[in-house]
């Protein structure tokens, strides 16, 4: 016992210098700002972020109950519900489609993975050019415009009914490559003889998918779902570039991140309220993570 204690202390200097770089960065740029943000969230500051004064901790409660916050929370949840299941289904569909030995299948796999190379700015600008009602592609293709006048008047990103869907479409597309790669890797991990056994049992393609493929893909799908959900909760660039949180006055695409950081947000340059919404966003994400970790249960092997 004494020996063990001595050895623990002996490693300490080495541990200290090895941990110091990470610890300094994480303390200064993650832990400290989080603490500061929590503190700032009960304050009000002038428009330059100076002269902050306490406004009472009930500011958090009031922010959480305010019209704007609840609206943004609703939009965020809608965005998650739109993007995650559809993104997941499309990714699985593409992966199934490409999961065949065919001449040239590598080309198709490369195509399906390709959107992983687009950043949020690149993907959003490509979609802006597709959807923009004045100079956009869809609005200037005669038959599309006739079939769906909404692409021109007022435009998919400008119509309160379609704006969130349009942003979601752009986001789903941008994440498709990521989903495809993961699901394909998951499919390749499924032992081939399981499928053959199912074929021998007379199971058709559809039954094989539901009874063999999907259950074995479970862990992969769970992981992809968690990743997509967290991305969707934190999505910002799409709204910033495609809609600026609009159209107004409905604020159809003002998500929690846009409410917090968007240039056209009503609390723009209002540091105390921004901090409060940011901390509440953190709380929401924490809840989501814990629910998801609970769903995974013991599948992750910590330590």
């Amino acid at each position: 016992m004494a020996k063990r204690t001595r050895s623990r202390w002996r490693d300490l200097p080495t541990a200290v210098w090895m941990l110091t770089p990470s610890l300094v960065i994480l303390s200064v740029f993650v832990l400290y700002p989080l603490g500061q943000a929590i503190w700032l969230g009960h304050q009000r500051c002038d428009s330059q972020g100076d002269n902050c004064r306490s406004n009472g901790w009930d500011q958090y409660v009031d922010v959480a109950r305010s019209d704007e916050f609840l609206h943004a929370l609703g939009v965020t949840v809608k965005f998650v519900v739109l993007t995650v299941p559809i993104g997941l289904a499309l990714g699985v569909g593409l992966a199934m489609l490409a999961d065949k030995y065919l001449r040239g299948i590598g080309v198709f796999r490369a195509v399906f993975s390709s959107t992983v190379a687009t950043s949020v700015a690149v993907a959003s600008l490509m979609w802006l050019f597709l959807l923009q009602p004045d100079v956009g592609v869809l609005a200037n293709v005669g038959f599309i415009e006739e079939l769906f006048p909404v692409v021109k008047q007022p435009g998919l990103v400008r119509d309160p009914g379609t704006a969130l869907g349009a942003v979601a479409a752009s986001s789903i597309w941008a994440n498709l490559g990521f989903t495809f790669i993961l699901v394909t890797a998951g499919l390749q991990g499924i032992p081939r003889d399981l499928h053959e056994a199912a074929v021998v049992d007379g199971a058709g393609g559809v039954r094989r998918f539901w009874d063999v493929t999907l259950p074995l893909l479970g862990p992969t799908l769970l992981f992809v779902m968690i990743a997509l959900t967290s991305r969707a909760f934190q999505a910002y660039g799409e709204m910033d570039l495609l809609t600026d949180g609009g159209p107004r006055p409905q604020d159809s695409t003002t998500t929690l991140t846009y409410l917090t950081y968007g240039g056209d947000s009503v609390i723009n340059n209002n540091d105390g309220l921004q901090a409060a919404t940011a901390v509440l966003l953190f709380a929401v994400l924490l809840v989501v993570s814990i629910v998801q970790l609970g769903a995974i249960g013991r599948r992750i092997h910590y330590a």
């Binding site: 202390w9 541990a15 994480l26 700002p33 943000a37 901090a275 953190f282 924490l286």
Partner: peptide, 30 residues
Amino acid sequence: LDFPGRTIMFGVFLATLLVPLEATLVVNRR
């Protein structure tokens, strides 16, 4: 390595994983 406070320290590291960028931006910019 084995050193006193390892578990707590590792917990602190893991906790930073849960903090989204959005919660730290305002302060980090300052």
